[in-house]
Design a protein around this nucleic acid. Sequence first.
DNA 1: AACCAGGCGCATA
DNA 2: TATGCGCATGGT
Length: 285
Amino acid sequence: MKYVKRGSDLLVISEDIFSLAQTLDCGQAFRWEERADGKWHSVVKAVPLTVYETQEGVVFENTDEELFCRVWKDYFDFDTDYGSIRKSFSDDLYLSRAMDFCGGIRLLRQEPWEALCSFIISQNNNIPRIKGIISRLCSAFGDDLGGGDFSFPSAERLAVMEPEELAPLRAGFRAKYIVDAARKVSSGEVPLYSLEKLPLEEGLEALMKIKGVGPKVACCALLYGCGKKDAFPVDVWVKKILAELYPDGFPFGDSPCKGVAQQYLFHYRRFSPDFDENRSEKNEA
DNA sequence: AACCAGGCGCATA
DNA sequence: TATGCGCATGGT
């Protein structure tokens, strides 16, 4: 990965395969918005960003080297070699197909609390509504950064709320889970910011002390928020793929990067026309 | 107008 | 240990 200044912007050139759209819109993060001009916008760690892809590379608007190195290099996981990760899966027929379809995905290193809270909200829910709830959560309780941008509210901020006060989010039964998570994280009862160093099983055990956090949500928090690439969340789509394509068992169950494989398979199963239920009349021709 | 949504907690056996 | 159901709400 290299970068060069372009006025007040930074042009980032990845020698590895990288798709901005696939990465930001594959269901791992819920706060990225594609604008009418094709540029993506979000806020990470209270830093707003507009970013877009060109022939030359990815342009980070209003970003200097210092900011890029402090926030975005880590967030986009640019220090990880996804080429070698993909290569470790390339002998497998279905993962090869999945990677042909969406091999430009990188796993974002999201802020741990935001990831945990987001995937609590995701349970028994659909992506448009998840995004709506999270958007309202930020505008109601995050810091106003101007220009319509808000930070994600901290665990400390939400820990002092009562579930009823979250009613405007229209999160339903999940409101009480958000508050319980905020309290256990801010008190240190769940050491969210130490889980990265712990074995996967210990992280899962700690997170599942939170009401409304089971194996799936805990796995997502560890994978997307704590950089645990060996976490392997199994949702309905991954369950389908395991049953349909790997009836004799998933061959990468011991891979330290099986979470990356999970993300490829999830996106492939949901959106590829290789699967009949995804094929509309239009693209059937 | 039912049915479903990147699940989980609880009751039942 | 294993299933099944209710849960709030909105989109289709």
